[in-house]
Every structure is written in structure tokens, then in C-alpha cells.
Computed example of a mutant assay.
Amino acid sequence: MCPPEYFAVGYAINPWMAPGTPVDVELAVKQWTVLRDTLLGLGHTVHVLPPGPELPDMVYAANGAFSVHGVVYGARFRYPQRSAEADRHRAFYLEQGWRYVAPTVINEGEGDFAYLPGRLGGLVLAGHGFRTDPAAHAEAQSVLGRPVLSLHLSDPRFYHLDVALAALDDHTVAYFPGAFTAPTRQILRNAFPDAVIADEDDALAFGLNLISDGRHAVLNSEATGLAAKLRAAGYEPVPVELGELKKGGGSVRCCIAELRSA
């Protein structure tokens, strides 16, 4: 995770961003701190990257890379405003002794990749349509040695996979069908007949931008309907307020790069 000490909305690279939007940095840091402390309280370890004044979006740490079993497939950002973030993440993984593989094509890390270790020996779900180049799916499959299922996003409000779909445990996902093309909706229906289906209101509230450890699902507090569905499906929803960071087009999941060392 990376604290939003320099968070601002000074440019627009997704439909949620409106340049000049007032941002309460103190509130953003407080909300981020609650999220970090929530993860710690659930027994997870959190590593913190130092923020940089020239990188206001670095709080969205999920976009910096994608790791599977000790191998890291690095990010290559589509927009120059965020390109320097990739080097910050690369330095972290190398310092920690991970095997880091630099990408040759555009991809935005966990923004467009999700992992289900219980499917096909480890299945990568990969989004494209707005940020990540489809060629990155094949590259990720080669680098990570895991099968990749490509999913085509069609609604620009859901510009990354992680605002349209979430891994809930080793086998199960939640998603909003309206974020995807018709062929991809059919793929998801066939592959995940037991999925938790979010409605549009909760998807637009960034409810699917959640992180789950298989039992606890930490999600935006605005997504009350999805929280009820998750509870009914056997998960324990843990709501957090991240209204300030939503101004930049992100929420819980965007703020967290999951470290899969094994």
C-alpha cells in the first residue's frame, strides 16, 4: 500500500476524474489509514511504499504489478502521468527478493488481473478494453506459467477489471455483468455459475473494488446491497469509507497490491 499524502485530481485518465476536484488530503489519509488498520486487524501483513509528490495516483498501489507464487509480472502504464510508478514497484520487489519480469506491452497490474488458485491449478482472469493491451494476457501467461482467461470490458466507467469483478476465494468471483461485452458475459456465466452478481448501483459505488481473504470481504461502505449478498453467500463483509479516493477512480482494491509469495 502507499499512503495518499500527495493525492490530487489534477488530470483525467478515467471517467471518474474531474480535474480541479477539491480533495481533502487529510481525510484521504485518514480513510486510507483505517483501511490499512482494518487489514492489520484481520491478521494480514502490510508493506508501505513511500509516496512521491510527483505521483498523486500512487495510492492506487494495485496497478504497479501482478504477482503469482513469487513471480512478479511488472506494470507498464498506458498514461505517462503514472509511468514512473512502475519503477517504484519494481524496486520494492527486487529489494524483497522476488523474481521480477519487466513487461514489453501495456498492462496495469492487478487493475486488470485477478487470480484464482483453486481453478485449473491457478487461473488468471485478465481484463482488456480500456487500459491493458490484450497482448499482455499472453505475456502474463508465459511469465507466470498459469492459464489466462481474457475478459473484454465494454463500459468505460469500469475501465479496469478490478472495478467490475473481484475474486472472493480460491474458486469464486463476484462481478457486474453490464461491465462486459455479451460474449464475455457468456464466458463468465459458464465459468462461474455460482458467482455473486452485483447490481449497477453497487458496482458504481465501487463495491466490487474489494479485497477478500476467503472469509472477510473488505469493501466500500456505500455498497450495502452487495454486502448483503456477500453475507448471504457465506462471506463476512467489512465495510470501510473511502469517499475521497473514489474521486480518483478507485477504492479498496485499487489501494492494495496483493503479495502472492506461495
Score class of each variant (00 low, 15 high):
F130V: 09
S221R: 08
A191M: 15
G250H: 03
R231F: 06
H216K: 00
C2M: 02
E54M: 14
L94F: 01
V148Q: 10
S154R: 13
A228S: 06
W98N: 07
A114D: 06
K30R: 15
V218T: 06
D133T: 10
P147A: 09
V238Y: 14
P22H: 05
G10Q: 03
E85H: 06
A84C: 10
R36W: 03
L259K: 01
T33W: 03
D202M: 11
L42S: 12
V29K: 10
P147N: 05
S150L: 13
D170R: 14
L226R: 03
S261Q: 11
G20A: 04
T132M: 06
I106F: 05
V196Q: 01
D87E: 15
Y159H: 10
A166S: 05
R119Y: 09
M17C: 02
G20N: 11
L39I: 09
V173E: 14
M17V: 02
A262N: 08
R185W: 05
E241Y: 01
A8F: 02
L120W: 07
N107R: 07
V218W: 13
A140V: 14
V196G: 01
A182K: 12
K229A: 15
A138Q: 05
N107G: 08
P237N: 12
G70F: 09
P156K: 11
S154F: 06
G145M: 11
G249M: 13
V68W: 10
K247M: 02
Y175K: 04
L245T: 11
P239L: 06
V59E: 01
A262R: 08
G43I: 03
G178W: 04
A198N: 08
P103M: 12
V105W: 08
V34A: 10
L204W: 00
L165Q: 10
G64N: 14
P183C: 11
L144Y: 13
A223W: 08
L245F: 01
A65P: 00
S212M: 02
A228T: 05
A61W: 01
T21Q: 01
A232W: 03
R260T: 01
G97Q: 10
Y235L: 09
E222C: 13
G10E: 14
E110A: 14
A223R: 04
A126V: 09
L168A: 09
V196K: 04
A227C: 07
V238E: 14
G111A: 07
S67P: 00
H44E: 04
N14G: 04
A61K: 06
F130H: 15
C254V: 12
D112N: 14
A232I: 05
T45N: 05
T181Q: 13
A217F: 08
D169Y: 02
A8S: 15
P56T: 00
F206S: 02
A126Y: 02
R131D: 13
G74D: 14
D162S: 12
C255S: 15
P117K: 09
V9G: 05
L230E: 15
R88M: 13
G70M: 00
V163H: 05
G129V: 14
A191P: 13
G43Y: 01
V218R: 05
R231N: 02
G111W: 05
F176R: 06
L245D: 02
R189W: 00
F192E: 11
A223N: 08
L120I: 00
P239R: 03
V101S: 07
R36P: 03
A62D: 10
D194P: 01
D170M: 02
P117A: 13
K229M: 12
D162K: 09
E5D: 15
N220C: 11
